[in-house]
Amino acid sequence: MFKWLRRLRALPPIPEAAWQATLRRYAFLGALPEADRQRLRSLTAGFLRDKEFHGAKGFTITNEVALAIAAQAVLPVLHLKGGLNWYDDFVGIVVHRSEVVARRKVIDEAQVVHEYGEVVAGEAMERGPVMLSWDDVLASSITSERGYNVVIHEFAHKIDMRSGDANGCPPLPPGFAGQRSSRAAREAWLAVLQPAYDHFREQTIKAERFGTEAPWLDAYGATSISEFFAVACEAYFVNRPNFARDFPGVLAIFDEFFLPKRP
């Protein structure tokens, strides 16, 4: 259905009891200021109106499932100009009961094809649906100390992909970081994110190889700068104090992007 036709439909009501239960279960949502909680509820209703949920392999999409995913998915766009328009390149959300094995195919430098299975809790496809594991969505209610949140992770990828392939740099607004061009803004962004990623990757490798203390963020963020961006977004939204302590530079550019000053 065309986007403008979907927007003609009335926003679905969110029962008060269900909304309060969601805020209690996912404490980082309940801790938002009152004005932000009101906007979150409105965007959540719009998300539920615009998206289609599908249960995989017999999994049932209940109101609890849809509301929990929607409320967490809209958190990253809560203050972004355009709001839900950041997610207008797809409609479907596929939910599995638990993690799934995704088939991968890579070609090495010798042009040899390697196929393997990768266990995933979620996946975002460019201009395609988002896949999530319900067990991992539920786990987000108790994993904020580790900065883990599968919904925010996959929807951060969706934001990143608005500029094409996921590369750790979402489309930046004019004037970002005081830069006059989009190219300069991107350079300013990567001047902060790249060294943070390099340092995180080095810490992760040392922990794996030599038994040094491992970073508290998900080690999956060390696989690429796009994964580091998504992992960093998880922690930024669910455990800001720890993220601010360890990634002050990234916090500053994230604040400028995700919390733009209103004119």
Rank of each mutant, 00 (worst) to 15 (best):
residue 51 K to W: 09
residue 4 W to T: 08
residue 181 S to E: 13
residue 159 I to G: 02
residue 260 P to N: 13
residue 256 E to I: 03
residue 47 F to E: 00
residue 117 G to H: 11
residue 233 C to Q: 05
residue 83 G to I: 04
residue 82 G to K: 07
residue 110 A to Y: 13
residue 116 Y to C: 12
residue 221 G to C: 03
residue 18 A to D: 15
residue 65 V to R: 09
residue 19 W to E: 14
residue 1 M to V: 08
residue 14 I to A: 10
residue 235 A to D: 04
residue 188 A to P: 00
residue 111 Q to K: 14
residue 56 A to E: 15
residue 194 Q to W: 13
residue 74 V to F: 02
residue 8 L to T: 11
residue 190 L to D: 06
residue 209 R to P: 00
residue 60 T to L: 12
residue 154 E to W: 05
residue 96 H to K: 05
residue 238 V to Y: 09
residue 245 R to K: 10
residue 18 A to E: 15
residue 221 G to V: 07
residue 237 F to D: 01
residue 78 L to E: 14
residue 113 V to T: 12
residue 71 A to C: 06
residue 46 G to M: 08
residue 242 N to Q: 13
residue 189 W to R: 01
residue 124 A to N: 12
residue 263 P to Y: 10
residue 155 F to C: 02
residue 197 Y to T: 09
residue 167 N to Q: 11
residue 162 R to M: 10
residue 93 I to Y: 09
residue 17 A to W: 06
residue 240 R to Y: 13
residue 67 L to V: 06
residue 101 V to L: 11
residue 212 T to M: 09
residue 234 E to N: 09
residue 29 L to H: 04
residue 4 W to H: 01
residue 10 A to V: 07
residue 59 F to V: 05
residue 123 E to H: 15
residue 84 L to F: 10
residue 152 I to Q: 02
residue 244 A to V: 12
residue 54 H to T: 07
residue 242 N to W: 05
residue 234 E to G: 01
residue 211 G to Q: 06
residue 185 A to M: 08
residue 27 A to G: 03
residue 251 L to R: 14
residue 144 S to I: 10
residue 259 L to V: 13
residue 25 R to G: 02
residue 166 A to V: 11
residue 37 R to M: 07
residue 166 A to R: 08
residue 50 D to P: 01
residue 79 H to D: 13
residue 139 A to Y: 02
residue 88 D to E: 15
residue 81 K to M: 03
residue 51 K to F: 14
residue 93 I to V: 15
residue 156 A to T: 01
residue 130 V to K: 03
residue 89 D to C: 09
residue 221 G to E: 02
